[in-house]
């Protein structure tokens, strides 16, 4: 029978159905409780506003997207390098790790004004905020991947006469890959938060800026349209990370399906 097939189709449709039901409840609640649009706009209203203002939304979305992606890219490069250094050398670990933790504990919203003093208003603070907020999980994960090499594997390599460099490239790095990709999924969403924070605190473009200025004009519907735009971009970038992960580290999932 096709029951398994239809079950599978249902499983794929589930996220859409749940979203639809949520929107429906939201819509009904707004109508039922007579909630004013300035407090909470109805989803249908947000949809209409999105269509009306799609040009500016798209433009600012792309602005946020490219600053995020650049910051994220820098975070991958720096995160992998620092993670490898920390994971491979106990000296680098003891020297850098406490500093990294301290740095990670600093609220990133606090550094945006400083960045603006240094770099002025523009894309640069958004890129850097996206970078600093997203590189920490990458560092930690890459370092963990390296640090958890089985001692027996290390002994096998050493008894073959492998250099530390060979152990790193043949065992450490491949082993750290699943850890890296797991961290990218976390990091990309953080990167969006970073660039939107920067745009909100002091930007003149991007979705964060759009939401803030719409909020200032009591245009709540546009603010919500911005929120949805960020959420959609976040999901798309996450899906991209998962796709890359599946292609490159299939072995880590032992042939099972990952979602």
């Amino acid at each position: 029978m096709t029951s398994e097939k239809s079950l599978n189709a249902l499983r794929l449709a589930m996220p859409w159905l749940v979203t639809l039901v949520l929107f429906l409840l939201w819509e009904l609640a707004c109508i039922g409780f007579r909630i004013e649009e300035i407090v909470l706009p109805r989803p249908s209203r947000i949809f209409v506003v999105t269509l009306e203002r799609w040009q500016i939304l798209l433009e600012f979305c792309l602005q946020t997207l490219w600053t995020t992606v650049i910051g994220f890219g820098l975070a991958i490069v720096a995160g992998v390098l620092i993670g490898l250094a920390i994971g491979a050398s106990p000296f680098v670990y003891s020297g850098l790790y406490p500093l990294l933790i301290a740095f990670n504990a600093v609220p990133k919203v606090a550094i945006v004004p400083i960045l603006m003093i240094w770099l002025g208003v523009g894309p640069a603070p958004a890129i850097i905020t996206a970078f600093v907020i997203s590189f920490f999980p990458i560092v930690v994960n890459v370092a963990t991947g390296l640090a958890t090499i089985e001692p027996e594997m290390r002994d096998v390599m050493r008894s073959l006469g492998a250099s530390n460099y060979e152990i790193l490239t043949k065992v450490g790095i491949p082993r750290a890959m699943p850890y890296l990709f797991a961290s990218l999924k976390v990091a990309i969403t953080l990167a969006f938060i970073g660039s939107v924070i920067a745009e909100t605190v002091g930007g003149n473009r991007g979705i964060g800026f759009l939401m803030l200025s719409a909020g200032a004009r009591n245009d709540t519907a546009t603010t919500f349209a911005g929120l949805f735009a960020i959420a959609i971009m976040g999901v798309l970038m996450y899906a991209l990370c998962v796709a890359v992960e599946k292609r490159t580290t299939r072995w880590a999932f032992r042939g099972e399906l990952v979602h």
């Binding site: 594997m153 096998v156 008894s159 073959l160 006469g161 492998a162 043949k170 082993r175």
Partner: peptide
């Protein structure tokens, strides 16, 4: 140099095929 080792735990690399796992010493020695 040039020692072969095997432990109770097979410690094969999951990202390499069996063939590539066995080729490993030849890439190093």
């Amino acid at each position: 140099k040039g020692v072969g080792m095997a432990f109770q735990n097979a410690t094969l690399m999951p990202w390499r095929t069996t063939r590539d796992n066995i080729l490993l010493p030849l890439e190093v020695v």
